[in-house]
């Protein structure tokens, strides 16, 4: 498999490490006075940490180019065919300024 790193170009998959589905969103950090023991907190984390759509088809997923430029990438890949349709940089690669609310 070869992944086209948006910064480095196409590289063989041995340079990358896989994390998994990019869809689950980590519940935001909370200010503790408001957040401790908030109802549904555990349920939201259960969903984020454990449940997966386990898509059979196009899936967007996180890969880390650790053997290259150390960027986290969002790779659109078909889990049936391994075909990759797009590779984007994660919101916080490089030095672009990112507002807390603006990340994908």
């Amino acid at each position: 498999m070869r992944i086209a790193c948006p910064f480095c170009g196409e590289r063989e998959n041995g340079e990358f490490t896989y994390l998994g589905d990019a869809k689950p969103q980590r519940p935001a950090m909370v200010a503790l006075d408001a957040g401790v023991g908030a109802s549904g907190e555990q349920e939201a984390f259960y969903d984020y940490v454990y449940l997966r759509d386990n898509v059979a088809g196009e899936m967007s997923e996180y890969w880390y180019h650790g053997g290259g430029c150390r960027s986290w990438l969002v790779v659109q890949r078909n889990t049936m065919t391994h075909e990759i349709s797009s590779v984007k940089a994660a919101a916080g690669t490089g030095a672009a300024a990112v507002k807390a609310s603006a990340r994908s």
């Binding site: 880390y64 986290w72 994660a90 916080g92 300024a97 990112v98 990340r103």
Partner: peptide
């Protein structure tokens, strides 16, 4: 190191 980069680039890109 990989995890911290994940935090920086994916979880909290708003942090400098």
């Amino acid at each position: 190191m990989q995890y911290l980069e994940y935090c920086r680039q994916v979880l909290w890109p708003e942090l400098d």
